[in-house]
């Protein structure tokens, strides 16, 4: 007798969620251990951790093996799977809506030297390969305008938007997993700090830049990545980060190697076997 698709899908999700804990937890611990390292390095580590969710899900789903299926009573599997799908959709909706708004703003804005100026914005925004700047920023002091553009260009050069889109997808798939949300929050902060590092390395005076950042506290949305909760961390980092290196590959390689070493053996077998399957018939038939 074949295992219902909802049972298999739910089994894949539970399996992925449990195994993603290894990747996410490892990344968070490693990022913590790299406290004295650069924000770029920590960002790479956290990105690697968040990538494990979607990658594992693809890998497990491609197997679609009946033995991954759960044997839950009645329509419970179908109900739980529908709940997961609804949660994932609710997480993805704001992302889609934000993207649509930014695309519309970009299409209406005025293009100039690779930048798009929009009268409908309050703060600079970077998405995909586009930097959107508020029309009002033309009146900012030249030094503030330069710092803002440097910050947004840093996000563009680092490919942060793509990483954050991946993180968003990871959170949508694993919306029930607190480590996914925690990792994403840390990832966003480290991306801002890494972009700040590039601004300072480009020659902007740290105290002036920190003052500019402080003046933006409470401003809407993205832009310089302003959020009151992380501004203090960023201001202190701008004024005295121990390491502003932009090199990411060693941290990425270390993170990948550790994840592979520790999570690899775990992924070789099903992480969670339902109790009733421990004694099931080898044919896989369920009562």
């Amino acid at each position: 007798m074949s295992v219902p698709l909802a049972d298999i899908a739910l089994g894949v999700l539970v399996d992925t969620g449990l195994k993603a804990t290894v990747g996410l937890g490892l990344a968070l611990v490693l990022a913590r251990a790299l406290k004295a390292s650069s924000a770029s390095a920590r960002h790479a580590v956290l990105a690697c951790g968040l990538a494990t969710g979607p990658l594992l899900l693809i890998q497990r789903a491609s197997l679609a093996a009946p033995e991954l299926g759960l044997s839950l009573p009645g329509q419970l599997s179908a109900g739980l799977f529908a709940l997961w799908a609804l949660g994932a959709l609710l997480v993805l909706l704001p992302f889609g809506r934000g993207l649509a708004v930014l695309t519309a703003l970009a299409s209406r804005g005025h293009r100039e030297e690779g930048l798009i100026w929009s009268p409908d914005l309050e703060v600079p925004v970077t998405f995909a390969r586009t930097i959107l700047l508020p029309q009002a920023a033309r009146e900012w002091p030249a030094s503030e305008q330069r710092a803002a553009i440097l910050h947004e260009r840093a996000h563009l050069q680092r490919g942060d938007w793509w990483v954050h889109a991946l993180a968003w997808i990871s959170c949508a798939l694993l919306w029930f997993h607190p480590l996914a949300w925690w990792s994403r929050r840390q990832l966003m902060l480290e991306a801002e700090r890494a972009a700040d590092d590039r601004v300072v390395l480009a020659g902007v005076q740290p105290s002036a830049y920190a003052q500019q950042l402080l003046g933006l506290v409470g401003s809407p949305g993205a832009g310089l990545g302003i959020a009151s909760s992380n501004t203090a961390v960023r201001v202190h980092a701008i004024l005295g980060a121990p390491n502003r290196s932009l090199v990411r590959w060693p941290a990425l390689a270390l993170s990948f190697a550790l994840t592979w070493t520790l999570a690899g053996p775990v992924t070789a077998f099903a992480a969670w076997t339902p109790p009733d399957q421990l004694h099931c018939d080898p044919t896989g038939d369920s009562p």
Partner: peptide, 17 residues
């Protein structure tokens, strides 16, 4: 917190950072 951050920025400015 804002006052403390302002003070930290001021100190950095005085130190030429």
């Amino acid at each position: 917190e804002l006052s403390e951050l302002e003070a930290a920025i001021q100190r950095a400015r005085e130190e030429g950072r």
